[in-house]
Write a protein that binds this DNA or RNA. Structure first.
Lengths: 214, 214
DNA sequence: ACAAATCTACCACCTTAGTGGTAGATTATT
DNA sequence: AATAATCTACCACTAAGGTGGTAGATTTGT
């Protein structure tokens, strides 16, 4: 099954944990730990030296943290797939890692079989994520509840115009689309900015997308 | 354990499936199906009539689809928690439902015990999502690969300024932050807009957040 | 050491955005 | 029927954004 002989580098500042994972991995015929590192700098250097197929990277390390290390390794041109292997299920950590382009995010409290399965899936090209993170991810995609009330403050016309602003339209273009005068558009923009207490249409546009208002 | 006596409405256009789910649910002491509907319109009406604690809503129905029905029920002021119960694991469907504010998204091929557990968790206030959707959600949070190459076209300074633009800063403020003249900032803005072929800083800001560039 | 790219700065000019005010027409609300 | 809110429109003015050009200083690559 799965990939023939996958080479792996382990990055974690706890020797005991590395030992455990190595033992687990070496039980699999097709998996082989070819390098270990105990911090980010070492990881970056060894990634180039050993060019492993896959890197299991701890998130919380002294010195360079996981995300910084990840970015460096990616930038260095190494072809390794990189998986975060960490205890943190905090939204910020998960999102940061995803945005930095990890190929997987696995929690350390996963079952051993799960870890092995995830490794194999990652080498198949999947983006692997520990199942318990589903909630975390879903939440970050949801609109904030509070922001609804802000929309309520705006009249229909203002909401409509805010929608166009958040698409990057200029006042002139909005006027054309709504078939009203540009001066009228300006009035609405002025009023809606005041209502939601923002200083410019850019802030308004960013506000819309960040809060997923529409 | 968990909630005492949860009232549930089932919405699905397949009578057989409803039958099966009803039987499953009625096995639980604290769960009770108080209403069924076979389409969106009926669901909206009965949501108000029976005011169930929880609504299991099919996504693909004739007439009003699940998301539209969801929005209507929410707007009508019903207090019910609403869970999508569907076969679709497509990214578009999941995201649409989340943005519309569902309280859960459960796949129909879940194990019966899972469904029961999800229902109870949802009533505790959790956002419940079937585990197999983790990948789907994670992917939608990732930056698009192609957009990296666009960043490569920009010089360091231009990237830096684009970052500020995407935070809503004006040229004047950017100049202050970088301790350079506003006229210089304008030069960089002019050049970066030309390079990524956009017409205004708003489009640039939106481009950044939509592609999760930083 | 030289060329190319980048960063800096200024200028003039035009466009777009935002503010303050007035004011008529339409739509809800009471 | 009367009031309030909203939508429409215009004006004048200030601020901010964007374009085109020139040009010196610095960094990078060869």
């Amino acid at each position: 099954m799965s990939h023939p002989n996958i080479t792996i580098m382990l990055v974690d500042d706890h020797p005991l944990l590395r030992k455990g994972v190595v033992q687990l991995i070496e039980l699999e015929d097709n998996l082989q730990v070819v390098a270990e590192a105990s911090n980010g700098e070492e990881a970056i250097q060894k990634a180039l030296e050993f060019n492993p197929d896959l890197i299991l990277l701890d998130l919380n390390m002294k010195g360079l943290n996981g995300v910084e290390t990840l970015k460096s390794i990616k930038q260095s041109g190494a072809q390794s797939r990189i998986i975060m292997f960490t205890v943190s299920d905090s939204e910020a950590d998960v999102l940061q890692a995803l945005k930095a382009g990890v190929d997987g995010y696995i929690l350390k409290d996963s079952e051993p079989e799960e870890l092995i399965e995830h490794i194999n899936n990652a080498m198949r090209g999947d983006l692997v994520i520990s199942a318990p993170l589903t909630q975390v991810l879903a939440k970050s995609l949801r609109p904030k509840v509070e922001s609804d009330s802000i929309l309520d403050k705006l009249t229909n016309r203002e909401q409509q115009i805010l929608r166009y602003i958040s698409q990057g339209d200029s006042n002139k273009i909005i006027a054309r689309k709504l078939d009203i005068a540009e001066s009228t558009v300006k009035v609405h923009v002025k009023n809606l900015l005041k209502k939601i207490n923002l200083r410019s249409r850019i802030e308004a546009a960013l506000f819309v997308v960040e809060n997923k208002l529409f």
